[in-house]
């Protein structure tokens, strides 16, 4: 299967586990692009090896996570300067397995139009379903997909929200398998809270999803923050596992978007322009699963 691993995807840092998970679980075996790897923890920090060749893989510790790559010289990891802002609260939500392509997971994360139907009473309501036009741009300097000026009415936008509110969103695809959203903070006027997902492909149609939050919120308990985000992601998960094919179609024609899908359209085009094959329908003549 790794003959479908394109160079762009192969050169990305991929999330392995959050820092607490490394301490709790290591040593453990898992998969990275269908290749079995072993993750150990030692006095010098985590060490990761391929189990098939024995080769040591590069290791990076950043943003509360341990990252690795099959490529010995991965591209630089994306920047999230908000991690350096004093007073923000970081909450990693723990990995959740999903049987679909990592790219389907990212695309769903970028989607506004499903809020009223998949997250009713939390991120949307069936009385306000319209997606107001927003702007999508490819930021050439960092080679990222951004969607800005996104707005949506949300009954309970965050764990700390006390009432429904019109919420401003910005979406950012930082890597094929990593995305960040910035949304109006209920805890600090004029500021944005960050929610991110980092996806590790186990196989082309199975992955492990790590969600994290970086927020201005001194009120909520850890437990309620975690469960707020976990509830939302589990509502998405049943959708994700039932989108067929599990591989993401990049070519026009197989799926029909509307203007509300502008971010998804740009994301698919960006993947195609980078020659991404892994996790897509590219190169598969007749996809059925």
């Amino acid at each position: 299967m790794t003959d479908r691993l394109d160079s762009f995807t192969r050169s990305q840092w991929i999330v392995i586990e959050d820092d607490a998970g490394i301490v709790r679980r290591a040593p453990f075996e898992t998969l990275l692009f269908s290749i079995p790897i072993r993750v150990a923890n030692g006095p010098d920090g985590p060490r990761i090896h391929r189990l098939d060749t024995g080769e040591a893989l590069p290791v990076l510790r950043r943003y509360g996570y341990v990252w690795s790559a099959l490529d010995p010289a991965p591209r630089p990891l994306f920047e999230v300067p908000e991690f350096d802002e004093a007073g923000r609260r970081f909450t990693p939500c723990g990995p959740v397995g999903v049987k679909t392509s990592a790219l389907r997971v990212i695309e769903n994360f970028l989607d506004l139009a499903h809020f009223p139907f998949v997250h009713p009473g939390i991120l949307g309501t069936e009385s306000e379903t319209e997606v107001i036009p927003y702007r999508v741009e490819i930021r050439r300097d960092v080679d990222e997909v951004w969607a800005v000026d996104c707005g949506f009415f949300q009954p309970k936008a965050m764990a700390a929200s006390s009432a429904g509110a019109q919420v401003e969103y910005r979406y950012r695809v930082a890597q094929p398998c990593s995305a960040v959203l910035y949304k109006t903070s209920p805890g600090r006027a004029g500021a944005f809270d960050l929610i991110g997902i980092l996806v590790r492909p186990l196989h082309e149609t199975a992955c492990e999803v790590h969600a994290w939050m970086l927020m201005w919120d001194e009120e909520s308990s850890d437990e309620s923050l975690l469960q707020f985000q976990q509830e939302i992601f589990l509502q998405d998960r049943i959708i994700l596992e039932n989108q067929i094919p599990h591989l993401l179609p990049l070519s026009a024609g197989m799926e029909i978007p509307t203007r509300a899908d502008a971010t998804s359209i740009a994301y698919r085009r960006w993947l195609k322009n980078h020659g991404v094959i892994w996790g897509t329908c590219e190169g598969i003549p007749e996809v059925t699963a």
Binding site: G21, G94, S221, D222, E223, S224, L226, Q227
Partner: peptide, 11 residues
């Protein structure tokens, strides 16, 4: 309701 951090904290 008193939430317990069953996951990922295994409380």
């Amino acid at each position: 309701r008193r939430p317990v951090d069953m996951y990922p904290g295994h409380a």
